[in-house]
Design a protein around this nucleic acid. Structure first.
Lengths: 300, 300
DNA sequence: CGGCTTATACTCAATATGAGCATAAATCTT
DNA sequence: AAGATTTATGCTCATATTGAGTATAAGCCG
């Protein structure tokens, strides 16, 4: 009765450097690190932890499950059995000298909303989506898809950009046949590196989860160094979410939550007035896991 | 290399009747409906849909993945292989005459915050947790656990009740040895029906997910009848979240979001002044999946 | 020294939220 | 039938939160 089943663990391992969110890859950036569940692994999470640490040599701060797939794509590769993929989001701090780290926005340039590069990319996408929609026969479908494009990519001034919809936007582009993974030739595809299988989709899932999570859980600190300035923290949130934050309001919101405490030391190399250094409050860590965190990232 | 692996699909199927949130069970309420992934299932979600509909005879409105486990517990049951459980949250509207539906709060009486029954149950829990904490040797651990109990069960007036922490509260009770599943004899356990395996834990996961989700996605409507009054909608939200909502503010928030439209008809059997009937706006359905919904359920 | 950069404190208006008052329109009680 | 009770619905008001901007401080650099 039981068919041959293989369990694959896939990790979206994220770190950050110089205000750039990074993802660990293999195959020259074409795959996410992944490996089979082994019988020595005591649990799924232990399995992910085990080989991510084996790969990077560093402990992982935070691991959470993303999604479990049993795609047709995967099943076709082993017709007599079934392939189940369980994906995880993992965060780590240190990554010195390791290879395989790639910028998120190499794969999703349009998601870097605040950057000039992102703007031009979205302009191109808007154009291509318009063509896609225009080619539809059924007027009702056309209308609905036009609406969908508009709200996902903030086209027109009716809808605002929502940074959490990374997956939905990727899926739209996939359906529109504008990504290489959907069989689109490279020269017609939208900018951004493709990946093997559905790994880019999984990366999108991880990015979306992290963007959502930093709004209400203090996970950003898993990516920050031990001591940091408020601007560094803000830049981190901005780079993850891809959107710009009002500096003074960011400070206000962070300070009033008592998530961080002064170290007493100052950062001198700011290029301007020296900044106070802070550290994440370990004591409230447990409590805040429960209570939650706020960050001034408004949703429409 | 591949060991014998069995995939089990488990569903937290939820409906509602008379302002009571219900969950579908089997084994006289001791198990959640679950079945093996079959080779005829085209995908995991299709598998869940297939046999939930086979069981209830009704279409499911909303299905989403909860979590994938590979618990020791489960693995011990089949030592030569591995058992993976993939759990889902499913919502359905109609359930007339079917057996197997149980009230959520039969399993988690303490989660019914607004009810008198919940209050007394929490008072008992508070007492038992106090004993548990008092028996700890290490003062630092005792302090931390005391703090944990306080914030999870809103003990003292420092922390407010957070309805989303269903799973965390169950896990605390499990660690404290106050539930039957943890090996506690029935007479010492906290009130509430136990389930086989970790099914009550999975139910807690589903409840938590739904409580979180109704805050920002219009999923409540999956549980509502086609036409409803504002009070019925409010009662539904209240019963799911377990907490009380200010009536006028609820109306204000719902109305200003244009999620629902008047049908023109009135509900006469209100026991007071007749109420306008509303329906969920199908047109904005798609858009709201993206934009989100608000409900006046404040978090601390 | 003046010009540039970043840090930090504070103000102000617009909005959102929590709580309550008041009135309307039914049913139930006596 | 009048009054009590119940639910529906409209509106006010104080407070909290948020978005945006001004002002000043304290380093750098030429």
């Amino acid at each position: 009765m039981t068919t041959q089943i293989m369990i694959e663990l896939i990790a979206v391992l994220t770190a950050a450097r110089d205000d750039s969110p990074l993802v660990m890859t293999i195959d020259h950036g074409r795959s996410l690190p992944s490996g089979p569940l082994e019988s020595t692994h005591r649990s799924l999470q232990a399995g992910v932890r085990a080989w991510v640490e084996r790969q990077t040599g560093h402990p992982i701060g935070h691991v959470e499950q993303l999604y479990t797939f049993a795609d047709h794509d995967r099943t076709l590769a082993m017709p007599q059995g079934r392939m189940i993929a369980i994906s995880y989001l993992a965060l780590t701090r240190s990554h010195a000298g390791e290879t395989g780290w790639r910028n998120w926005y190499d794969y999703f340039p349009w998601e870097n909303y605040k950057a000039e590069e992102g703007r031009t990319c979205r302009a191109l996408i808007e154009h291509k989506l318009q063509q896609w929609v225009a080619g539809m026969e059924n007027p009702a479908t056309r209308m609905r898809q036009k609406q969908r494009c508009a709200s996902l990519f903030a086209i027109g001034n009716l809808s605002a950009w929502n940074d959490e919809l990374v997956l939905q936007r990727y899926e739209l582009l996939y359906e529109a046949g504008l990504v290489v993974e959907a069989g689109c030739p490279l020269e017609h595809a939208v900018p951004g590196l493709a990946m093997y299988h559905d790994h880019r989709r999984i990366l999108a899932t991880g990015m979306a989860r992290l963007r959502a999570k930093i709004r209400y859980r203090p996970v950003v600190f898993e990516l920050m160094p031990e001591e940091f300035t408020l601007l560094q923290l803000q830049r981190m949130v901005e780079s993850l979410s891809g959107i710009h934050i009002h500096k003074q309001n960011f400070r206000r919101l962070i300070m009033q939550q008592q998530l961080i405490e002064e170290t007493g030391a100052m950062e001198e190399r700011t290029g301007g007035r020296p900044a106070r250094l802070f550290r994440f409050c370990g004591e409230v860590r447990q409590a805040r896991q429960i209570t939650g965190t706020k960050v001034p990232l408004a949703l429409p």
